[in-house]
Design a protein around this nucleic acid. Sequence first.
DNA 1: ACATATTTGTCCTGATTGCAAATTAATTAG
DNA 2: CTAATTAATTTGCAATCAGGACAAATATGT
Lengths: 405, 405
Amino acid sequence: MKTADPELMRAINRFHVLDTIRRAGSISRVEIGERTQLSATTISAITASLLDDALITPRHEGDLRDGAGRGRPRVMLTLNASAARVVGAKIAPTGLVFVVTDFQGDILAELTLPVRVDRLPLEVFADLVEDGVRRCVLDAGLGLSDVTSVALAVPGIVEHGSGRVRSSSIFRDRDVKLASFVADRLGVATIAESDANAITMAQHWFGRARDCDDFVLVSVEDALGLGVMHNGQLFRGARELSLDLGHMMMGVSTAQSEQLTDIASEKAILSGEHADLRLREAMRVGRGMSHVRRLVAEGDDVFAAAASRAGEALGIAIANLAGLFAPPRVILVGSSLALGRGLIEPLQASFARALAEPLREVTEIVIDEAGDELWARGAAAVALSELYGSPWSTTGPVLRSGTKA
Amino acid sequence: MKTADPELMRAINRFHVLDTIRRAGSISRVEIGERTQLSATTISAITASLLDDALITPRHEGDLRDGAGRGRPRVMLTLNASAARVVGAKIAPTGLVFVVTDFQGDILAELTLPVRVDRLPLEVFADLVEDGVRRCVLDAGLGLSDVTSVALAVPGIVEHGSGRVRSSSIFRDRDVKLASFVADRLGVATIAESDANAITMAQHWFGRARDCDDFVLVSVEDALGLGVMHNGQLFRGARELSLDLGHMMMGVSTAQSEQLTDIASEKAILSGEHADLRLREAMRVGRGMSHVRRLVAEGDDVFAAAASRAGEALGIAIANLAGLFAPPRVILVGSSLALGRGLIEPLQASFARALAEPLREVTEIVIDEAGDELWARGAAAVALSELYGSPWSTTGPVLRSGTKA
DNA sequence: ACATATTTGTCCTGATTGCAAATTAATTAG
DNA sequence: CTAATTAATTTGCAATCAGGACAAATATGT
């Protein structure tokens, strides 16, 4: 267990202030005080320290004093964008997307490598990643030495702490020490995270959950991922394992049950002898879903049935998750959403029907068709949040909100 | 979010020390230091304060110096059993069980009321509870004024913070403000908690998970409950809602799916026209399961099939949970376990088959046929853990009737 | 133009906290 | 009876936060 010492206290408050500044974008000291309930003097001390470390910068100019301008104008504080640069990468079977962001998480450069990386030999794969990172960093007008850390978002089950990929459709092997492997090549600190956690973080920082500290995210792609934001932090299972939805068994008995992957993953929906040549081509480049959408629109029954079946199963699975975590919001992302209504309508219908009564009115489903760069940006956000010195991502005690003693 | 000040720091460390003493039963200051990693001086200060508040007592006698006795003997510290008394109650459809414990959680008195409280009018129900508490307190040789708080463990979905029972088979109504209702009658601070969380706490403090800070517990009774211990604290969903397993939908499509309750709750297993008179009698008094076990042993196929079906479904559900939380241990409790192998073997088989690969070797299932008093004791433990001043996760503002908070 | 009001941010004091080192206390070994 | 040994407390130091006084920067009023 973590012992509470002054150092921890400082870390907590420092992180808190930094995070408040990040969320606001530009904010004055007094307002930080209002939001964090810290005393003015504490704010002053902490911001001074942050200014000293060049993590934030004052912005005298933007003195948008809202009418009631009387006394001394407040000076706005902003994250110092150039305090650090990180690289985030989304790794998917059909391609890699790299993003270089500044300290705020704003994108400086972006690179898409539409290459299948499915089950490549590890060396070859690492070559691709290394190359992509280097190139993207160059595109941003930087050198590798300017990059503080690299974050890789991988589908499957990832052990964040050790940077290991327990199992993933990308690798043939289990237990790939991805983070240290890449770190050795690049000479830059590297972390690995599940792609679902990355996009969860992205939604929290940049997307549909900026206002929301508790939500569940389900990603529907080749793999079925799950991210849970609980009390403003990523919920990780025991031993830092990322969560996964694909292994969920649907059914009452072993005989007649299937893993959700076998029903609702891209592969499951698209496969079958029915697939014609053009579809196979589309699949190879990750555009299978839009292709199928067209087929369905043109009256293809088989795919329509598969999509509907997948949607229905997903709706049930999501309702079960909602029953467990009771989140006010559920966010749906992933390439399979390109299937459109044929997937989503059955999903929402079965979700509504399966959701437990007391939650029915308070849980909303949000669908977000974000591009791959948001996932990469989420990976970057994971790296940044660690740079911010988050004290409680490191097993600190979860602090309760509210009641002052 | 809570702001970190010295007060919080102290609260954390104080709780930490108190909890260490509780776990050990009897422990010296040096050993506390070893376990908590706190400095000797801090320990000294905190224990002095605890001694001052009479929460702990020194035990000079028990100087079991393990052979290598040279220097000054360590003085052992123990919880002061009489620092507080709490009442824990397990509320089940077939009866109430009350327990009075001291500050350590040791049972001082126990009272079982084998009365059906199923859907009684709220007033009548409250009469029973009030009566049971008063009587049990008397049995312990105490008065109600000696009792610091009362904790009620209720099946169903409970909002711990507000003490509300969202939905339960016990009450016809939704949103019963149970805690404040009972608090008003007894004039004693009262909290409500789901029965699953209570038994989870009990397993952590007294039972099969004393060594284990991460586990999942599934309770199989009339209702299907779920408790998750994460990092040594009860995991509560957003907004402090207790978790529930009964609403989990098993199946790939809405058409052919059922709630787990309808497959694996007691009612589901026992019901059917097949039930004869004696079974109905047994059910009424909560002994249905042992009765059925006998029937199955005598060759009753219908019940055997029902039990097996329930076990299979439960195994799948539990495997899914294990996939989400990745706990090293899963504990099974509840009256339905009295069914014996007819339920448990199919459960373990389907669990083993449904469990995702990477967890297969690291997740163990433990079955515990604890009596009802352990549940009540768990409720008491929940109340105690708040008395200990748990700085995190608490938020359970203990509800008082008239008295000032 | 000048004085006053108002708001913002910083400096100083006081109360806590924690840790490290020295000090006192209570034993046993010889 | 003295020395050695281990346990617990006391003392000194550094850090935190909070509250109040003070300086700075601007708006308002005459």
